[in-house]
């Protein structure tokens, strides 16, 4: 998924202008369709969505679900792709305010520097819902709520599953981290360590950064396999699925069977990991749900109806999937990403 950008990290991503134009075109088309149907909300809500970019499959899925969800609810979606730049997002939010939208969804590319523009939205009485990431601000009244996952919980879910899977057996675990220095990485590590701390038979023996990429995940796993005595690694925990897919290849090339000789658990729920699970190469993934925008729509609709402010943080569920449902989940996702 998009951890690279979650970190505001160095991964640079660009989006072709053509695709962006296509996106806007689609949004307009969907909007007019929705207006034509005029179902759901009497008035036909108009929502602006300032998306970070389309740097990963997960991000693309989030955008796609935002569009689908809007259509289903009769919401006119004004979509803007910021191409990884905060100034583009600020411009987009201002333009949404000028257009008089009913609400704004913002997936912030960085965590600071939002107070002024969100103040403008508040002055215009337009509620803002943060998607996918929190922001740093002393004034939490600037936004209605934040819909994000609980990244510590994701680590806990993975750890708890592993503890349950190995039961009382001794298990030496290796960890492939994301890019060093990100709060997300610290959280996923922290949650996992919390969960396995309760089981004295689980030992985290090695940890190294795979920088969220397949290639580095593979290289790091190769290193683990070489550094540890043959057959001594019982499980691998990876901060994202892509690194795990690389690690699975490394395990195979070392003549071992991933999923059997070495247990795997990772986070994100991208289609390729479901495929690996269906093939018996992986054991579990914790989904980072991409349907954040539809959740935000529902919160918004409820808020407009009864005017009760939602909690400041709405956590998306961190659901763990296992091979039993993998084939079906893969089929469901492969066109989404």
């Amino acid at each position: 998924m998009d951890m690279k950008t979650l970190l505001g990290s160095r991964k640079i991503s660009r989006q072709g202008l053509a695709r962006r134009m296509l996106g806007i075109g689609t949004a307009v088309l969907l909007g007019s369709l929705a207006a034509g149907c005029d179902s759901g909300d009497k008035k036909g809500l108009t929502v602006g969505f300032s998306q970070i970019g389309s740097e990963s499959g997960w991000r693309a899925a989030e955008t796609k679900l935002a569009r689908q969800g809007a259509e289903q609810r009769g919401i006119t979606l004004k979509f803007s792709d910021a191409q990884q730049r905060q100034e583009n997002q600020i411009k987009a939010v201002r333009s949404f305010i000028a257009q008089g939208v009913d609400a704004i969804l913002l997936a912030p590319v960085v965590s600071s520097g939002w107070d002024e523009v969100l103040g403008e939205a508040k002055a215009a009485n337009i509620p803002v819902i943060l998607l996918d990431r929190q922001i740093d601000t002393p004034n939490v009244d600037l936004y209605l709520t934040a819909v994000t996952s609980d990244t510590i919980e994701e680590g806990r879910v993975a750890g708890r599953w592993l503890a349950g899977k190995v039961q009382g057996r001794d298990c030496r675990i290796v960890e492939i981290q994301g890019t060093v220095g990100a709060s997300l990485v610290a959280n996923r590590k922290k949650g996992f360590e919390e969960a396995i701390a309760t089981a004295p038979n689980l030992h985290l023996v090695r940890t190294q950064s795979g920088e969220f990429t397949r290639a580095k995940g593979k290289e790091v796993m190769e290193g683990f396999l070489k550094a540890e005595a043959p057959g001594s690694i019982c499980a691998v925990y990876s901060h994202n699925d892509d690194m795990m897919i690389g690690a699975i290849q490394a395990i195979k090339e070392a003549g071992l069977k991933p999923g059997t000789d070495i247990l795997t658990v990772s986070i994100d729920g991208v289609p390729d990991i479901f495929k690996a699970m269906a093939d018996g190469d992986a054991n579990a993934t914790v989904e980072l749900a991409p349907d954040m925008a539809p959740r935000a729509y529902d919160i918004l609709l409820a808020y407009r109806k009864d005017h009760a402010p939602p909690p400041k943080w709405v956590q998306t569920p961190s659901k763990l999937y296992e091979p039993d449902t993998a084939a079906a989940e893969y089929a469901r996702r492969k066109d989404l990403y």
């Binding site: 690279k4 991964k11 991503s13 740097e55 990963s56 920088e211 969220f212 990429t213 397949r214 290639a215 580095k216 593979k218 892509d242 897919i245 690389g246 290849q249 390729d272």
Partner: peptide
């Protein structure tokens, strides 16, 4: 080589 190694083309990260 890098693409064949991970059996996939990772436009964001290959050769970064």
């Amino acid at each position: 080589i890098a693409t064949a190694d991970i059996k996939g083309a990772d436009a964001n990260n290959a050769g970064l």
